[in-house]
Amino acid sequence: MEALVSSAIGMMTAAGVYLMLRQRTFPVIVGLTLLTYAVNVFLFTSGRLATNMPAIYGEGAPGYSDPLPQALVLTAIVISFGMTAVIVMMALGAFLEAGHDKVDMNDEDTPTDGGQK
């Protein structure tokens, strides 16, 4: 199980980083989503992998599965979900305003107008 989980994290991270370095916003967002999946699974394993163990340690229990990483993962999932929603909205807005979805700003040399338009 350790090999399966760790290779899954590794592959999701690699795919996420690759997609994140693309030039269009859509692959970048998919890459960021993959990266957050990898993070969530990684956080889950930080309490050690244990199956069929009680979350609360009691007398005679063979061991326990740490409940804290599960709480951390829940927080991380909610936050990354919200952040993904924000970046999708923003990317859509930028696409509609600019007419294309390139990530880099190659018209950087024009002076800013201080938001007058």
């Binding site: 957050t36 993070v39 956080l43």
Partner: peptide, 30 residues
Amino acid sequence: GRDRLRAGVQYIAFNLVGSSLFLFALGAIY
């Protein structure tokens, strides 16, 4: 504004990477 939105997308993408990195670090430390 067009430039502001596009700069905003870059800003969010950069910080989302930062947040993922932070979670990796916290998971490892925990």
